[in-house]
Amino acid sequence: MKRSLVLVTLWLAVSASVARAQTEILNASYDISRELFAEVNAAFVPAYKSSGGGDVSIKQSHGGSSRQARSVLEGLKADVVTFNQLNDVQLLADNGFVAKDWAARFPFNAAPYYSVHSILVRKGNPKGIRDWADLARPGVTIVQVNPKTGGNGRYAVLAYYAAGLQASGGDAAKARAFAKKILANVVVFESGGRTATSTFTEREIGDVLVTFEAETLGLARAPGAVFEVVTPSVSVLAEFPVAVVKKVAARRGTEAVARAYLDFLYTPAGQEIIARNHYRPRNAEVAARHADKLTPVKTVEVGPFFGGWEKVTKEFFDNGALVDVLLKEIAAERVN
């Protein structure tokens, strides 16, 4: 008992002294950006210091993008957010945590990089997967993120639907049936992107993993990889929005650091790290340098193609909307 008290006091003292030594900012991010921001943070800290900004340390929190947005809303003291879908930042803006014009505060709609969804299969592609249509075949098992809680899962469902629309020449009923066939093959809905990955890679569940290209390329290009990437014919453009949480940063006096941190993502050094982690950079030079690795892919955008996130959320992902309806039908058919 006494010993644990001593330990606790010691620990408190140590963590308090560390916390006071320097400026600290917290980046609340989506699940699969773990490696990306580990690299970004390691590069930003010396860059900021040499530019005369002083000592700074960056803490990370990762989770499903929407869960992270809610945590910030409920009191997680994040100075910056780096999410994987626009409406999670918009939610913070609507509640006064982020500037109303947040999308205009940084270049490219405040999205320093983007990605698309791709399909990861096991080595040799034993099920012969070429495109989304192959995921609708009976007997193919899919692992993906839960579309109710993670942007990663939402982009996947939108991609299925978009592919269905394109194949049928814009027939909504056929697109719905197509998306339903694919969803019926999903064996695990994980809460976050990395959770889905480890289920597919470590626990060897599923024939395919549907997730951001940033994740699939990283896995397929690692030394001794036992996976292959299939780039589908159409995908949904996934922009990764960033914002300063002014409500938190203003109070903590970290606005300047927070802004510098997000600006860093747009610098050639930042863009290089982004590209190295298999995201698609905005900087043309950096993009050219990595062009051989990032195959061109046809994308549709949530705004023009689907009518914006608000509409998409209402029609696809809200309680009782399309995804719920489809999953319910699937479960009912499975029982019969």
Binding site: M1, S4, W11
Partner: peptide, 16 residues
């Protein structure tokens, strides 16, 4: 190690 310290802190308070 930090997680261990935090868990011990939580347990150290909860226990008494």
């Amino acid at each position: 190690l930090h997680a261990l310290g935090l868990s011990l802190l939580a347990a150290g308070v909860a226990l008494p």
